[in-house]
Each structure stands twice: as structure tokens, then as C-alpha cells.
């Protein structure tokens, strides 16, 4: 569980902001605007990119060769953001993203990283026992699938392009977007059909 900040940290933050503000380096308005724009990024952006790639092969090729341009097509401003790399799962190969050194994450298209992604446990274990981590998520890969762990160590940020599940033929972009979760975009899970649809 992510613990709350201690009182002394809250006090330090206030003093830090006051010291910066006194020199004209930040204003409360700038902080509020920056926070609001950061809050706007969410995994739905990445999910929609995946859904579109499933439906439109030219978009899929763009996504795999220039993730930032593909994000821009969704109306995301990538100015100043790190380059976005997208790794395609295919039969026999599954990607799982981790940052063992810190918490690099494709925030422009997925929003804030969840606490677990930043946890010491995930960072230590995903790179060494990825199959045990996948099992904790209840993720069963088809037999014969190789796991490729992507340790995000440098200037790129990485997102997974999962395989489109069977049973989604004829689905709209909105319907497909709804089954692509943040966990599937990191690679700890696979897109799942809703129970009702799977039963049909």
C-alpha cells in the first residue's frame, strides 16, 4: 500500500514551493495547470491506439515505427515527451515492460504509473521471474509462448501492442478500446472478453 507522506515531508514541500515562488520560478497557477494536464492522460489513450491498430493496418505500422506520431494522431501532444516505442505481441512472443532502475513509463499515453509498477517487488521480480509475476496476475499465456521482458532503462518509453482476442470480429473501435486495460498495455495481462460476450 502506498503510504501517505509524513508531516515533515508536507512541511518541506510547502517550504520548497515558497522558496521557488519567492524567486518567480513557480506559481500556484502553473502547478495547477501542470497537474491538470498530467491528470488528463489515461490508459484509455493507449487502449484506443491499440484498438485502432487492430482495425487499421496502416495505423498499426505507424504505431510500431513511430509511436509518438501515432499518439499525436489521437490528439496527444508529444512535444517534450520521450519517444514512444511500441512492442507487438504475436503468436509465440509476449512482451512485459518494467523499469528496474526507476519507474520509466509511457505517461503520455497511459497516465501516471500505478503504485505496483513503481514498487520494489515488481522492479526486482519482473526481470528475473516474469512468469511468476504473470501468474500472480492470473495471466496464462498460450503454451509455447516466449516471454520477453523489456527493461526500460533509457530514453524511450515502451508500450505493448497486445494481440486481438478471438471473438471480437466485427467489433467497433469503442468496443475494442474497452477491453484493452492498462495491465494489458504493460504486458502483465491479456485483453479479455467480457464474460457475457465470451459465453456467446
Amino acid at each position: 500500500m502506498s503510504a501517505p507522506a509524513r508531516p515533515e515531508s508536507l512541511a518541506l514541500l510547502d517550504k520548497f514551493v515558497a522558496a521557488l515562488a519567492a524567486r518567480g520560478l513557480v506559481t500556484e497557477q502553473e502547478i495547477a495547470e501542470r497537474q491538470a494536464s498530467t491528470d488528463r492522460a489515461s490508459p484509455e489513450i493507449g487502449a484506443r491506439m491499440v484498438a485502432r491498430a487492430w482495425l487499421d493496418d496502416s495505423y498499426r505500422r505507424l504505431l510500431l515505427t513511430n509511436g509518438a506520431a501515432a499518439a499525436e494522431r489521437m490528439g496527444v501532444s508529444m512535444a517534450g515527451a520521450p519517444p514512444l516505442g511500441v512492442l507487438e505481441n504475436r503468436p509465440g512472443l509476449h512482451h512485459l515492460v518494467v523499469c528496474t532502475l526507476c519507474s520509466c513509463y509511457p505517461r503520455a499515453v497511459l497516465g501516471y504509473p500505478p503504485h505496483w509498477y513503481k514498487s520494489f517487488e515488481y522492479r526486482a521480480r519482473a526481470v528475473r521471474e516474469p512468469r511468476a509475476v504473470l501468474a500472480e496476475w492470473g495471466t496464462a499465456l498460450p503454451p509455447g509462448t516466449q516471454v520477453r521482458v523489456v527493461d526500460s532503462t533509457a530514453d524511450y518509453r515502451w508500450m505493448v501492442l497486445p494481440m486481438r482476442p478471438a471473438g471480437t470480429e466485427g467489433w467497433s473501435e469503442d468496443q475494442l478500446t474497452a477491453i484493452v486495460t492498462r495491465d494489458a498495455l504493460v504486458g502483465v495481462a491479456l485483453p479479455q472478453l467480457p464474460v457475457a460476450a465470451a459465453a456467446e
Binding site: 500500500m1 502506498s2 508536507l10
Partner: peptide
């Protein structure tokens, strides 16, 4: 085990992040 905490950062975290 990896603790599956999905909560977004609290106000303190978001403020530090923005700064």
C-alpha cells in the same frame, strides 16, 4: 508478491510531480 495498488498518486504526489 507484488501489491496491486491501483490508486493514483495523492495530492502530495501529484503536486511534487507537477513541480
Amino acid at each position: 508478491p507484488v501489491e496491486r495498488d491501483e490508486a493514483p498518486p495523492d495530492e502530495f504526489g501529484k503536486r511534487v510531480d507537477a513541480i
